[in-house]
Design a protein around this nucleic acid. Sequence first.
DNA 1: GTCTATAGGGGGATAGAC
DNA 2: GTCTATCCCCCTATAGAC
Lengths: 207, 207
Amino acid sequence: MTGTREKILDAAERLFGKHGVAATSLRRVTSEAGVNLAAIHYHFGSKQDLLDQVILRKAGPMNERRLKLLEEFEAETAPVPVSVEKIVVAFVLPMLLMDKTPDFSRFLGRVHAEGLIPEIAQRNFQPMFDRFLEALHRALPEMSTGELAWKIHFAIGALAHSLTSRPHLAGGNEPDSPLAIATRLVAFLSNGFRAPVTLEREIEVNP
Amino acid sequence: MTGTREKILDAAERLFGKHGVAATSLRRVTSEAGVNLAAIHYHFGSKQDLLDQVILRKAGPMNERRLKLLEEFEAETAPVPVSVEKIVVAFVLPMLLMDKTPDFSRFLGRVHAEGLIPEIAQRNFQPMFDRFLEALHRALPEMSTGELAWKIHFAIGALAHSLTSRPHLAGGNEPDSPLAIATRLVAFLSNGFRAPVTLEREIEVNP
DNA sequence: GTCTATAGGGGGATAGAC
DNA sequence: GTCTATCCCCCTATAGAC
């Protein structure tokens, strides 16, 4: 028997992820959760505070799993730096395989895509980001942290997008398990991270 | 002297891109455009129709530039297939360098991220997607179209995210011109597309 | 084509009984 | 802790004068 607070968090996570935060009303959340509208303000105070709590409830554990995976990989290969692939796996997998349902993953993808990561969550993610940046810099010492930061940015975009939707193109109709998607994504991103940046010779084109 | 209709489209493009579609009211649009609230309904009918028109106004020309670039590259190298890099350049550059301002690009990134691409735009993008899928398949014949469709999906996510925000991480504070971003992105994505997918040996991990 | 005025609904938030 | 009732604002959309 889960409490009211938990039911609200579950419903908010699901609806925010499915329709977006701005497009989801608190009335829909409480209706979906089967609780009274006022409960949301009693337990959280405001929509913004609810959003923060939905993030914080699972982001902490997720980031801990990321860091734990990374440290395990590092322990295995020390003193040799961990491979790019493994760093990407440690970053991507806990997000894609969180829980049995994809609710939280999709929710976080949405929040990222809508650019709403509040400062609260920012503070929660920053140490983890820094840690992965450092690991990447060890695996790819020839790249500046500025370049690597951009690549992480690209990777987050690809990850977030793959969490909220799937290709609406022609092609196979296989269901594509989360693990299969993760495998494709890891291969794609790892190779991306390894790409040399040739900034001195920029793209030449006449637009 | 631009007309009312044009002023509304410009303002909507800017605000939708900056704050998101759901979070932007028509009142803000008309206020920003310096026109009357009713004008928006006179010229477009509804918010959804306005959204469609904002997309359609520039998506057509943009996709034509994509296809034109691709065809030029193909003409240069025929009968050898075009390189992955050039295909990615043809796909990414017209989006990143559209207009002098990044308004439309950011808008499209948002719309993609919010998952709102309406069927109207879907029909507008589909032929272009198919054409690029085909070109990629020629450049990378060992990959199935299903795999390539997923990779395009990842690429769109990275592209959209890089259009709506930039890394909030430590590191350099250089302004990062659109062309510099494009160069990094092309390098990242091209290498990603070339990544072999080893689906038979999936990631092994105990979550 | 452009305005004012307003309908009509849904939104977040709160007060106060229980 | 949970409910009802309600405030008050902002929203989209429309009617109708000019």
